[in-house]
Amino acid sequence: MTGAHSGRTGRLRLSFIIPLAGFLLLAGFATMALMATLRGERDMSQLPSAMVGKPAPAIMLPSLLDEGRTVSAGDFAGRAFLVNVFASWCAPCRAEAPALALLAEEIAIMGIAYKDRPGDSRRFLTDYGDPFATIGIDRDGDAGMKWGVYGVPETFLVDANGTILLRHAGPIDRRVLDEVLWPAIRKLP
């Protein structure tokens, strides 16, 4: 070997260790997640939410399909209903469209078109079906903020008194339908 680095013993410097430290942090997280999956410890159940048990936010939104009208959670006074936050740019929302269609036969669903262009939302309904009783346009995500939404899709169950009973983040698949939503809907008075 040539004397390229002989005699030059570089001191460690913090800024050169940061990339390694950052990577190890991420890698540690990934390893833990993987190990937990392998041991079967990771429970994929719904999120605890600060919103559960609180009254549904009474924000007024412009209606997507009836121009000039507004929709809000108050429209369902005295009835239990679901709230589904969706967007045309959200791939998992396409996946849950059949589940929403099934749910719509039993319970009214209010849609919130989250951070989406109205034209795109309408196209989404054309392509994947419209299970909603009413749909509000939430262009800037204000309603999403009030509902504590941190991504789409998300679904909430609200009872006849307007109290949020349950929240599910992520698409509704067969398992969520059978183990989470149907049992909760059946328990309603």
């Binding site: 997280f29 990934a30 997640a33 990771r42 429970d43 994929m44 159940s45 719904q46 999120l47 967007a87 740019w89 959200c90 791939a91 998992p92 951070k115 995500g141 941190y150 991504g151 789409v152 899709p153 998300e154 983040a169 992520g170 698409p171």
Partner: peptide, 13 residues
């Protein structure tokens, strides 16, 4: 998704 299995997306916005 790793933490709680929720498949959400932040998307174009």
């Amino acid at each position: 998704e790793m933490v709680n299995g929720a498949r959400i997306t932040v998307g174009p916005p």
